[in-house]
């Protein structure tokens, strides 16, 4: 008894957390595919089974993300911006004032007030530039696993100046650079900086917190190369919590309170 489930049905991955007393007891993600509700229910079954629970131990399910309305088993839905705000406010113990969230297909900057409520937010327009999809595409063109980006980025002295964060144009630019023999490390470092600049523009001076901390979350926040580039562009410290891709799903469970 007393367990809650938070499901974040995103554009590229479905993330789930099992929570008891506002602590994450179990978490997992699977790639988004047709039949999102069935995939999410599989995750729920997996959590129940692996944690030795019965389905009746689950009190409530909250869904968030683009696919939240597909989840008929969820008794409660919340928009992902509010869920993100609540999740990070709790997990940062109230220190967070700005969230930079990099999702599969969007970028968000969320400003919080001292109570963890949304003070303001900005999102990119309908373009995958600088999002998780952009990194996936770059990894494919570079024939390099995304997990290696952080380490490879550190090997480059100077980032290469990349002109485009557009998924389509960046592809031709990267192909052209590879053809010229530019080392992958420099290209990757350049990619991190170009995305960091895009985030900095979205953040703007107005949204830069005057107090409190900036946190980066979403899948790409696990890339230390991107974090370093972002701190370099912002000239500010940016924090990342453990398991940053589950913040939104966790925040959804807090909205049940």
């Amino acid at each position: 008894m007393g367990y809650k489930i938070g499901l974040d049905l995103g554009s590229t991955a479905i993330k789930m957390v099992l929570v008891k007393n506002n602590e994450i007891a179990w978490s997992r993600k699977v790639p988004t595919a047709p039949g999102q509700e069935a995939l999410a229910l599989e995750l729920v079954k997996g959590a129940v089974s692996e944690c030795g629970l019965k389905e009746s131990d689950i009190d409530q399910i909250a869904a968030t993300g683009y696919g939240k309305k597909l989840m008929s088993a969820a008794g409660h839905t919340v928009d992902e911006i509010s869920a993100n705000a609540q999740g990070l406010h709790w997990l940062s113990e109230g220190r967070c004032r700005t969230i930079i969230n990099i999702g599969g297909q969007d970028l968000k900057v969320i400003n919080l007030n001292e109570n963890g409520r949304i003070a303001d937010f900005k999102m990119n327009d309908k373009c995958a530039a600088g999002t998780g999809r952009f990194f996936e595409q770059a990894a494919r063109i570079l024939d390099t696993p995304l997990e290696s980006f952080g380490e490879m980025s550190k090997l480059a002295d100077e980032p290469l100046e990349l002109n485009s964060t557009c998924v389509v144009f960046a592809e031709s630019e990267i192909v052209s650079l590879l053809a010229k023999g530019v080392p992958k490390e420099r290209i990757i470092k350049g990619l991190h900086h170009s995305v960091a600049r895009r985030i900095t523009h979205l953040l703007g001076n107005r949204n830069t917190p005057k107090s409190g901390d900036i946190y980066l979350d979403g899948g790409p926040s696990q890339n230390p190369g991107l974090l370093e580039a972002l701190e370099d562009e912002l000239l500010m410290e940016v924090k990342v919590l453990p398991n940053p891709q589950f913040t939104v799903a966790f925040g959804a469970t807090l909205s049940l309170n």
Binding site: Y66, D79, S82, D106, D120, F121
Partner: peptide, 20 residues
């Protein structure tokens, strides 16, 4: 109509911000 979902997400979050 393809941006309807992302617009709705923003509006829902904006509503949250207004009612905080």
């Amino acid at each position: 109509s393809e941006d309807s979902q992302t617009l709705l997400t923003r509006l829902e979050a904006y509503r949250s911000a207004l009612t905080n």
